[in-house]
Design a protein around this nucleic acid. Sequence first.
DNA 1: CTGAAAGCGCTAACAA
DNA 2: TTGTTAGCGCTTTCAG
Lengths: 361, 361
Amino acid sequence: MRASRGEGVSVPAQHTRDGGTPRRHQTAARSARPTGHDVADAAGVSQATVSLVLGGKWEGRVSPRTAEAVRAAARTLGYRPNLAARTLRLGRTRTALLVVPALTGEFFAAVHQGAVEVATSHDFGIVLYPSPEGIEKTPDPFASARTALDGVIASSMAPDALATLRGEGLPLVMLDSDEGDCDATVNVDIADGMRQVAAHLLALGHRDVAHLAADVDSWTFTARAEALAHALRAGGGAVVRTERAALSVAGGLDAATRVLAPGSARTPTAVVCDDDLLAAGALKAARRLGLRVPEEVSVTGFDDLTLATAVEPELTTVALPAQRVGAAGMEALLAVVEGRPPRPVRLPVRLLERGSTGPRP
Amino acid sequence: MRASRGEGVSVPAQHTRDGGTPRRHQTAARSARPTGHDVADAAGVSQATVSLVLGGKWEGRVSPRTAEAVRAAARTLGYRPNLAARTLRLGRTRTALLVVPALTGEFFAAVHQGAVEVATSHDFGIVLYPSPEGIEKTPDPFASARTALDGVIASSMAPDALATLRGEGLPLVMLDSDEGDCDATVNVDIADGMRQVAAHLLALGHRDVAHLAADVDSWTFTARAEALAHALRAGGGAVVRTERAALSVAGGLDAATRVLAPGSARTPTAVVCDDDLLAAGALKAARRLGLRVPEEVSVTGFDDLTLATAVEPELTTVALPAQRVGAAGMEALLAVVEGRPPRPVRLPVRLLERGSTGPRP
DNA sequence: CTGAAAGCGCTAACAA
DNA sequence: TTGTTAGCGCTTTCAG
């Protein structure tokens, strides 16, 4: 444990023009962060000049010499502008709210990462609103934000929280959603991903496939189901069975066990899963039923999580550009905020053929 | 796409006492968020009274009737206080910075979750600083914070970024670290976890174990190595080989392949991994080398990630209370901020015996 | 019991 | 080229 704080933070000598007078209204000896005023005093200029110089809009209004003096003073004092004051003055915060279903789950962690990267490079901040679990505890997304917001980036997986977000008149970017009531959209070409899965399976001779559908009510999953059914039908195959599954390994295991258990008339030769978690469960189910993958049954995943290459056999799955989703979302929001017209983004996906799929037995 | 924003957000009729006079200095017809002043006007009281009532410190200073009137007005106007103004006035933000090595990875996602939960229940906010990747892009953690901070919660895995954090005189809580230079610590009983692993393995008859050590320079991993070596030695076994591995499935695969490849004098009968990712890799290595797990070689993980039960056989591993780490961290920070003495926290861990370990062959 | 007023640190219009 | 000034919305004495 270190000693009490506040002590020992040496405040540079006061360069006040009027001598050693301490800062106005300074009540105690508490060391405080230097303000623009302190910098002004140190540089021998007015506080407004400091604001201009440090705000980068001094060209033609302040002499280069004074500007440099100000910057030097700011540097030696360790000056950092007070964001709260700036925000209060400007009414804008350069902060966006990212609404996602908890960070647990690589996908949204990567989305966050992508959004943060472009945000910081544009001097923006991101605050997170983990929607689903926390929603009872934080009914108001804005309360959790702890600051006014300049915009919202929301994933489709939080339809409940979105109602609150609307009507605030804030710029709203939707990720992975068919929602039209927003200022911009960033989509992943989910349908194409499922088409690639279907094509891959059809090419391997499969005609009877089971679909493990994630038991989550969001656009992305309904889109997956539709695209799969459509692509299969067009290719002469069919979904012989759709089984809903909780979005977890255990959920996949249960559902796949039901699907693969002997007894049905038409048993599937391939199991298409909405998510790698489900696919991992399907692998376990197959193993427990004595079915070899891919020799006796093929399994596909979706998302290309770390899991996908951790299991054996490694999953044939669809890789989603999660990070780029976040980046594109933030870029779209910046465009809206700055009055530029954002064009809708649709990001491509890629099927990764690995060991969990093979020719129809 | 929806229509332009700002329109249609009906501002409730002005209840100004002096008639229809618009708000002072209102330049245009822009609809704005109602301020405390607006509420005051609507309730027929002064703005100061509004502040008192809504701040919950009105008892004995404002009559219950006026208080209720104020609350009613605030409600109908949809008033939400301006955080920036409050912050500027108070100098405190009720916001903490959480420094973690990117959110990718369930462990820190759960830590974040836990911290957010206790934070929000105490009207605190959390902002994230993903240290390792982002560090080149955001050299200054405080810049990324976009607001003044009331405190910092930092994980041991970001020793580089911590230098910057120190000396700010901010309350600092360290997670999972032996760092003494802070105001409070929250630790997971890593050593005990490794002791449990060692005891489990020794009980199964293993005497020669290999250690796949994560190639990450942080306290938690050195602690794991030490605890393992110590516990094994005390029980009559030994680490016959330590192999450093990149912290990924592929890294575990590589390292385990080197460790398990035939040819060594004393070949390990068990592989203890610093992390479930490595253990998953070890499983793959064993399979490729034709070694059956757990019949011919035992494998243990650490962390109990989702992965642990997705692979086959399921991993014997140590479950860490990630969420409680975050929660305890935030609680400790609250204590420090409020001047209460935080007591160091050491959270227990639990060995989960699953299918990847068995008797020595 | 309630109102008036100061001022947190900053930006931007306006003066000099 | 630089300084003065008026607030942004809120909390908090201090008067009434």
